[in-house]
Design a protein around this nucleic acid. Structure first.
Lengths: 152, 152
DNA sequence: CTCTGTGCAAAGGATTTGCATGTAC
DNA sequence: GTACATGCAAATCCTTTGCACAGAG
């Protein structure tokens, strides 16, 4: 009998407790939404809207607060694309980077190793203790490029 | 004779005309401010404040509009650090990147070649036409690190 | 029971917009 | 003279905050 739902809930719960955070339904919802399907990149507002549909009283400021806490706890990572911040589950021990299509907004995650030694070297070279590395490459994906300039 | 001031004005003027933009005092001011001293990173508000001191009626929305146009024209490049957008003259044929101190806000420009082939390879690999590459590394500079945790 | 989290409503800051006037070309 | 740029003021969008109540541990 349905171990899945239970498992998911338990996972979020354990994840939160391990990070020293109280396990509330709101926090679990945010984690569930971000963890849903592969690797999702959502804005605070996306998350709030999705959460609202599950629980109509879910407040927008709670979404912001929870995301902020999850970032502090290192469970979630935040990136700024274009106009607003996007959030996603902080993957592997290392962060990863983004390739963003300006037309359709599709996002490809890039493995963290592309910058592995470069960022370390730069930090050392300039006496910086590195806290975050953001690499965002914007452009147009193949599909959009073809849509804009179709084969004559 | 003071060729310098004239030269600067003429440069901004020519730059604008070449880009197909009308040469207005406001646009020239913005370009002058950004071009002043090496490579400066200013927020739209920084620019507005500086421009205001030259011409008190310089409007904040004009600063935003001008920056937007200059970015479209490729004369200026925009980067988002933390909460607000920063602008600077779009340098060399290639862009460059930033190392930002979270405590004091100091910014170190990194040479563009650090990512030279990496970004190209990633674009090809994913079928993307690259339009911009942003690499921002945040952390703490040596001075701030020592200020926070002084030698016991 | 105590401390923290949440809902609500209002504040805050950055950026954009509509419109009448001013100005580059 | 005409089309575009600017000043001004209000609007909008994203995000944060203060406070009273609800809920986790």
């Amino acid at each position: 009998m349905m171990p899945t739902a239970m498992a998911v809930r338990t996972d979020s719960h354990a994840l939160l407790r391990r990070a020293g955070l109280r396990s509330t339904p709101q926090r679990q919802t945010v984690l569930d939404l971000l963890g849903d399907g592969e690797h999702r990149h959502l804005t605070a507002d996306d998350i709030w809207r999705a959460a609202s549909s599950r629980n109509p009283s879910f407040n927008r400021s709670t979404a912001y607060r929870v995301l902020d806490q999850l970032c502090d706890a290192g469970i979630v990572q935040q990136t700024r694309f274009g106009d607003s911040a996007h959030f996603e589950i902080a993957g592997a021990p290392e962060r990863h980077y983004h390739l963003v299509c300006r037309s359709c907004g599709s996002i490809v995650n890039l493995p963290s190793d592309v910058l592995a030694d470069i960022s370390g070297r730069l930090g050392r070279q300039h006496g910086f203790t590195i806290r975050s590395v953001d690499l965002t490459i914007e452009g147009e994906c193949r599909a959009c490029r073809q849509a804009v300039s179709p084969p004559a």
